[in-house]
Design a protein around this nucleic acid. Structure first.
Lengths: 193, 193
DNA sequence: TTTTTTGTTGATTGACGAGTCAATAAACTT
DNA sequence: AAGTTTATTGACTCGTCAATCAACAAAAAA
């Protein structure tokens, strides 16, 4: 009983399943069958919609990057003042929806993927540049010429906090990660003044 | 013509080859044959000395962690004053021998390994705790009660700078990474005073 | 109503790779 | 000299998995 218009639904289910499975297993050694099973379909169908496993990975990567980007944009839209803008970016970065164990685990693995798959590297590059320019713009009024340097540090710190999260046991603690980042930010700003 | 006492030589060659291959390929999807070939022997011999591929990975991981630990200890031994001690740790972290492309690439992949292999997680945990306690000890005279918090930030920043390095093209630039870390350190110290 | 398009899967193919084994040889021991 | 330990590899087993195929079903188009 083929209902039509299944494609977007199936694709989305596969993307979500891909993220969950990568996060669960903790590596990219996830079989298409595992993913398909979690998404409630046969592996053949997964291959039907995405040409290959790699395409599935890339779609999943685009998805988390898109979500993150949207959240940052949303937070920036309602932020007030330069300080508010930087804090908005940090809040979005460590929000419950992005800073979940499975998403963070997937994130780390996408980083690995970027080492060998050019398109993955490109996607991550886009994300990094956008984050960087958002940070610099927000920091310019606060740190002046030092804005790029402060942004570089803050960006690396965010990634480092993600990295460390994957080794922790227990539920993700976005609040304390955010606090660490904000502490650094304030230290830099005190100094800049 | 079996010369005796080959075991340590072969093992070491395999460990080095493992790191190089993981760094080169950019993932843990490296075959035992590839590693063995680079180390100049048959895959059967590699299996003979290490029981399994996983054992090889763990030995490689221990090796980079040991090297890093030794370098930190060496730098600390000749450091003068609290500031000097913190800087020594940073210098060791971004030294040319640790902050090489292949080592950094391997590092990232060991992080992934830690997600699914308990022993790998344990090793990384040991490294993290040691780094953390070194940092806290060095920071205590400088930041007092805030030492643990500052150390947490600095530790995450170091890992983040490693992470970002793997995406860059061109030769590794330890100097600029170190500069970023030192800038953050100084910002925190100015504030603490 | 025939034809085409879309959805779906079980079965199969083909490749690859970890780990084992049997065999060979050179040392060391007794 | 006979026996044991260490070094070494080519060939093989066995499992896994990405990708393909053939076939079936139902909706939409002609």
């Amino acid at each position: 009983m083929p209902k039509l218009g299944m494609e977007p639904i199936r694709k989305h289910a596969l993307v979500k399943a891909t993220i969950v499975e990568i996060g669960r297993v903790g590596s990219l050694d996830v079989t298409v069958s595992q993913i398909a099973k979690r998404a409630g379909m046969s592996s053949a169908l997964a291959h039907h919609y995405f040409g290959s496993k790699e395409d599935m990975f890339l779609a999943a990567m685009r998805h988390v990057l898109t979500l993150y980007g949207a959240e940052v944009r949303g937070a920036l839209a309602v932020a007030e003042g330069p300080q508010g803008r930087v804090r908005a970016i940090l809040r979005a970065s460590f929000s419950a929806s992005n800073f979940r164990r499975e998403a963070v685990g997937a994130w780390l693995n996408f980083w690995v993927l970027a080492q060998s798959v050019p398109e993955a590297r490109r996607l991550l590059g886009v994300y990094q540049r956008r984050l960087q320019s958002n940070l610099i713009a927000a920091l310019r009024p606060l740190a002046g010429d030092r804005a790029p340097a402060v942004a570089a540090g803050l960006g690396a710190l965010i990634d480092g906090l993600y990295l460390r999260e994957v080794l922790k046991s227990g539920p993700a603690d976005g609040a304390s990660a955010a606090a660490t980042a904000i502490a650094h930010l304030e230290a830099e700003l005190v100094r800049a003044r």
